[in-house]
Amino acid sequence: MNRLVEEIFGDEKPERHERFRGKYPVRVRGLANSFGDQTIHKDLDLDVKRGEILGVVGGAGTGKSVLMRSIIGLQQPDAGQIEVFGQSMTDAEPDEALGVRNRWGVLFQGGALFSTLTVGENVEVPIKQFYPDLDPEVTHQIARYKVVMSGLPEEAANKYPSELSGGMRKRAGLARALALDPELLFLDEPTAGLDPIGASAFDQLTRSLKETLGLTVFLITHDLDTLHEICDRVAVLADNRVIAVDTVPNLMKLDHPWIQEYFNGPRGRAALTAQALDELRKHMDLPIAAATVKALDKSDEDEA
């Protein structure tokens, strides 16, 4: 078995194959972060429910990425408690967190692929790190099907990241994040910089992977379409804390200026209309739906 895990846990190795059964894989209490004089978070509380896609939104500089980095242990918070899979990340010695590290996957904004390795070798890195005893042929095979599972053509496995387009690089990053069959997936702006078709395809991939693999997804995004399409709940960061966590329709009823501007601004409305139209198009056999779609299409043409 894994030498690292053995060294740390000795004989009291935790039952590693037990999936997390609790309600909240991620719990954050009273988190505080600051850079110099600038306060990023203060008294921030957040729970991520098991099996949901939680969208995290907020204006520029509200600390969305800092929150993610705090949870995954890349940033030591000034104060507060962070629990992942019921294990405290803030109190843990760096090595103890290892038992958690192989149960999550992280997709960084730029993909953060190792540029000197091919896509397949990138996917192999975490597998080799945690399970060095596995037969190399088996890790090759695992890496290959992870690449395919992330929606890349199989030929992409032996290409270098620099040979891929931005969208493919994101998918390759996702394949690496999924390498260890995690229960928890962190995505940092996965659709930023993708064209609308690519972004929509990535959303669908996230959704279907979540359903197939039973993932819990923590998703930072600016993309209103993503929020409407795939997020079960959305957490809004403002005033140094999470001001609301709810479904999009419920959030839109709230009377916070930023939330109103965000969801009910022109782009927010456009995303909403687009989603409503999509829903309607699924029921074109109903006369009322067909008539509405026709009328809306016509009004679009008139405006143009």
């Binding site: 270098y160 992977l209 197939t212």
Partner: peptide
């Protein structure tokens, strides 16, 4: 669950090498 996972991974059975 196993059924779903098998569906998800079943598509890949190629033998493309992963090294460059």
């Amino acid at each position: 669950r196993a059924e779903r996972l098998i569906d998800a991974v079943g598509d890949s059975d190629g033998d493309t090498p992963i090294d460059a």
